[in-house]
Computed example of a mutant assay.
Amino acid sequence: MMGIAAGCTGDLSALEPAGPSAASIARLWWVMLIVSLLIFSLVIGLFLATVFVPGFGRRISAQSWIGGGGIALPLPILFVLTLYAFWQGEHLLRGGGSLSPDTIRIEALATRWNWQFAYLDLPGAPLTHGTLHIPAGRTVEIAVTSEDVIHSLWIPRLGGKIDAVPGHTTFLRLRADTPGRYAGQCSEYCGTGHAGMRFEVLAHAPEDYPTALDYQEDQ
Rank of each mutant, 00 (worst) to 15 (best):
G3T: 07
A6D: 15
P17L: 01
P20I: 11
S21W: 00
A22W: 03
A22N: 06
A26S: 14
A26P: 12
A26W: 06
R27T: 14
L28M: 12
F40D: 00
L42C: 10
I44W: 01
L46T: 11
G57R: 10
S61D: 05
S61I: 06
A62H: 08
Q63F: 11
G69H: 13
I71D: 08
P74D: 12
L78R: 05
T82F: 15
A85I: 00
A85L: 01
E90W: 06
L93P: 01
G95E: 08
G95I: 10
G96E: 12
S98I: 02
S100V: 01
S100D: 02
T103N: 01
R105F: 02
R112M: 13
N114L: 14
D121C: 07
D121P: 11
A125R: 08
T128C: 07
G130N: 05
H133Q: 11
A136P: 04
V140L: 13
E141K: 00
I142Q: 05
H151C: 04
W154G: 08
P156G: 08
R157G: 05
R157I: 09
V165S: 09
G167F: 05
H168A: 13
R175W: 03
R181W: 02
Y182E: 02
Q185S: 10
E188P: 02
G191N: 10
T192P: 07
H194E: 12
H194G: 12
G196F: 02
L202P: 02
A205C: 07
A205I: 10
P206T: 08
D208N: 14
P210I: 03
Q216S: 09
